[in-house]
Design a protein around this nucleic acid. Structure first.
Lengths: 207, 207
DNA sequence: TTATTATTGTAACCAATTTCACATTTGGGA
DNA sequence: TCCCAAATGTGAAATTGGTTACAATAATAA
């Protein structure tokens, strides 16, 4: 199963998935690419092309089986893995992510928190104890952490990434506005909020 | 000034901007596309092409004037506007954004907070009072809010957007995992965190 | 002054992505 | 049974985005 799926398609799959879950709750068993597109503002052709990337399982003249499509997308995205997250940097954003309920519904769980501020080490957020970053290796192993989430200031982001990689995480989700260097075997996704906000500013300035 | 700049380019401009600020602090007056690219893992050709979209102001054989390039990008992104934000939904994420320092350094400021939970209306976060959503129109006008930030649950996101539009905001930054309908004159940027996290999951699942 | 090196700007090419057009399949109704 | 309407799947065309190659320019050193 080594079919390449484009990044553009991968970024749309979560949207399909979330819509299929809603549709399922409405007790729809079958959905057409047209209806799915209408709900997401994506053309039906685009959706069919995306889905065709990983085999054909729609039924001509009918549409797609909601349950089957949803499960298939979930598998492609690897959501069956129930990834375990550790958050490094328990400031406002890190704390918010530790409490973020939408993760749980996708099968992700926050299992560890790290900070280098002695004042908060030992306290708990959402029932999870904050540890010193010096204990990262031990705790990442113990708690079987898969994903490291970086919510430290930009200047400290690279060293947080280095510690996470050394501790053995399999992927990194970076919120710091900084370019990180990690081994090519470790997937890295950047979630720099200022990019989106700046893009909004740009569009608001045009007319 | 009606030159079209591609979304791909717009999304890279904030990265250039942030790097130029760092470079400026290092007292560099001139930077080459090569050096800028090295710091961001973007090819120098790509950078030159992006910058060429809005005129030529590099100097052949020399490079780009750091200050000038930074100011120019700031203007293109509309950051000189000092946009004023209102956050709707003061849960964990909304609260974190109300405290987020990186905004201020880009010239954005949070000037109003709204929630429909009576228990928190009247309290303050980061010195900003939480108002009832019923007072949105009045307060958006009073505080001269430009941008509405949506951090309510998905099911309430559309009505939050409707209220913001009715109150006169000029743009919307949406964190709820939902597709919003807004008038085409109102720029909308979606910041669905589950998209990035799912993409990370996908890449981690590949062999 | 002239050659050399560094570096931009851009045209031409190539790759990725999206849109278009349509053949094909399915179920339902006459 | 046969036709029609509703859909998918997909090749081809169009568009968008990225890479390559190189001419042009500027500073510096010989």
């Amino acid at each position: 199963m080594k079919k390449v799926i484009s990044q553009a398609t991968i970024d749309r799959l979560p949207l399909y998935f979330r819509t299929l879950r809603l549709v399922e709750e409405e007790d729809m068993q079958i959905i057409s690419s047209d209806e799915l597109g209408r709900r997401l503002d994506i053309t039906p052709e685009q959706i069919r092309k995306d889905l065709a990337t990983f085999g054909q399982f729609g039924r001509k003249g009918i549409g797609y089986d909601v349950r089957e499509l949803k499960d298939r997308i979930s598998n492609i995205l690897g959501l069956q893995n129930k990834w375990r997250l550790a958050i490094v940097g328990v400031g406002h954003l890190g704390g918010a992510l530790a409490n973020y309920v939408n993760f749980a519904s996708l099968g992700f769980s926050v299992v560890a928190l790290f900070d280098n501020n002695k004042k908060i080490v030992g306290t708990e957020v959402n029932g999870i104890k904050i540890n010193s970053v010096t204990r990262m290796k031990k705790i990442v192993a113990e708690k079987e952490v898969d994903i490291g989430v970086i919510t430290v200031p930009a200047a400290e982001a690279q060293s947080a990434a280095d510690l996470l990689v050394a501790a053995g995480v399999k992927g990194i989700w970076n919120f710091a506005p900084a370019k990180l260097s990690v081994p090519p075997t470790i997937p890295l996704v950047n979630e720099d909020l200022s990019v989106g906000l700046s893009a909004l500013s740009y569009h608001m300035s045009q007319d």
